[in-house]
Structures are given as C-alpha cells and as structure tokens.
C-alpha cells in the first residue's frame, strides 16, 4: 500500500510540474492563475498522501490550511483581475 501512496505522490508531482508550464507560458493572466489553482489542488492531495505515507497526522491539518489558503489566493487574484484592486468592495471596473 505504501508503494501505491508513494507512486501517486510522484505521479501528482510530475503532473504539477507539467502544469507549471501553463503557468509560465500563459498566454493570459487568467491562464496563469488557473494553473496556480490546479497546482494548489494537487499539492493539497500530495500533502494528505504524505501524511498517510509517513504516518504523520499533523500533515492533514497542514493540508486543510493549505487548501483554505489556496482557495483564498485564487479569489483574491480573481478580484484583482476584475477590479484592479485587492481591498474594498468587489465591483467591476
């Protein structure tokens, strides 16, 4: 079972690196944010996998906080894209 866990971790990491290409290549800002979001989801799953593979329950809490943060980051970037600001009311330009 541990082999499967480590294999999945490796597979997802390779996937995340491939997604990094989209973040670098763009071509538009939304594409890059989307790629960052995808990498965030993969990282979250990798953290849980690592937590089980190494038998460290604490990693699950790390994953939870990471997931909440990664979601917030996407929302903040979206807001910045739409309004040109980060703070204040969410109103379109």
């Amino acid at each position: 079972m541990t082999t499967l866990l480590w294999g999945t971790i490796l597979f997802l990491l390779v996937n995340a690196f491939v997604c990094l290409w989209r973040a670098l290549a763009g071509p538009t800002l939304p594409d890059r944010i989307l790629a960052a979001n995808v990498i965030g989801t993969k990282t979250l799953v990798v953290l849980v996998l690592l937590g089980l593979a190494l038998d460290q329950g604490l990693w699950l809490d790390v994953a939870l906080v990471y997931g909440l943060l990664s979601f917030t980051v996407t929302l903040v970037f979206s807001r910045f894209l739409e309004t040109g600001r980060i703070r204040g009311v969410w109103e379109s330009k």
Binding site: T41, L44, L64, F71, L75, S78
Partner: peptide
C-alpha cells in the same frame, strides 16, 4: 478536506471565469 475541495473548486472556477469575462 473533500467537502472543502468540492466547494472551492467550482467557486474558484466561477470567480476566475467571471473575472476574465469582465476583464
């Protein structure tokens, strides 16, 4: 965590798509 991912994935998609559309 499953609940978090299932909630946040469509929401993030909506926010990002709307931002791109309005931009």
């Amino acid at each position: 965590l499953i609940a978090l991912v299932l909630l946040s994935s469509p929401t993030a998609g909506h926010a990002l798509a709307r931002a791109a559309w309005r931009a």
